[in-house]
């Protein structure tokens, strides 16, 4: 028992040291994606492949309370810039949640967004098929057929989806969004398809927090798979057996 514990501690600290070393090695100005090649660029005309399952690993031990670099990066990347009179009607693709265990008082801060489930309830309930899962596991809303019924928002266990309550302008050309449709984190699908990482992950890494890791969960040699194999990770509301693509470490 204690032997096991010691070993897992050693593994974890080694992994931690490794990551810190990597963080140090990356000089300012050089983007991590250029170093890691986390995801190859798909050739033009090729559909997304089910051989890949995009996922994210959130290390809550590195995620600081009050830090919202990922939220800001998401808003900038996805053009979430509208002013909303009633904040409850505003869209939030990613948000920081502070959690505290009621009994022990242990606290964490973590980002919460679409968990990109393998069995997404939003896709099950959508009457028109607008809610969909791409072959590589990214859950999206096809706004061309979304009628704005909000049933997916009722079904989502993570409150990951937002309804656009007002007319919009000033969208990012690569991220169309508009009135009357439901939307949520796309895992920055437009960046991923270009071989880049999601904006939140990039900003977290660039700022040196290294709390977010993006990669292919199906590839056993990817960094995310190796980290998930080495340390204990969990899925939020694992009891629902949704098989989420976003995993959390340290809670």
């Amino acid at each position: 028992m204690s032997h096991n514990k010691r070993r897992s501690f050693l593994v974890a600290s080694a992994a931690g040291l490794g990551t810190v070393a990597l963080g140090v090695a990356v000089a300012p100005g050089i983007r991590l994606i250029e170093v890691s090649h986390a995801n190859p660029v798909r050739p033009a005309g090729q559909p997304a492949s089910s051989a890949v399952r995009w996922g994210m690993l959130v290390d809550t031990t590195r995620c600081a309370t009050g830090c919202d670099d990922c939220v800001k990066a998401c808003a900038a990347e996805n053009g979430i810039n509208e002013t909303v009179a009633d904040k409850r009607q505003g869209a939030q693709w990613i948000r920081k949640i502070d959690i505290k265990e009621a009994k022990t008082g242990r606290q964490h801060s973590l980002p919460m967004m679409c968990q990109h489930c393998a069995n997404p309830p939003c896709v099950d309930v959508c009457p028109t098929g607008a809610s969909m899962k791409r072959a590589d596991g990214i859950v999206l809303v096809d706004r061309h057929v979304c009628i704005g019924c909000r049933y997916c928002m009722m079904a989502c266990p993570y409150k990951a989806r937002s309804f656009v309550h007002q007319p919009l302008s000033g969208q990012n050309p690569e991220v169309p969004r508009g009135l009357g449709c439901v939307e949520s984190c796309t895992l920055c699908v437009h960046r991923v398809d270009k071989g880049q990482q999601p904006a939140c992950v990039e900003s977290c890494t660039t700022a040196g927090h290294n709390a977010l890791l993006f990669g292919d969960l199906n590839d056993p040699n990817s960094e995310i798979s190796r980290r998930a194999a080495a340390a204990a990770t969990s899925q939020i509301r694992a009891d629902l057996k949704l098989n989420t693509g976003v995993r959390y470490q340290g809670i």
């Binding site: 939220v71 808003a75 919009l168 990012n172």
Partner: peptide, 17 residues
Amino acid sequence: WDCHQPKAGYKATGAKP
């Protein structure tokens, strides 16, 4: 154009919601 950006070379700006 309710959803797509109708301007050429447009760069969206973000603000924390």
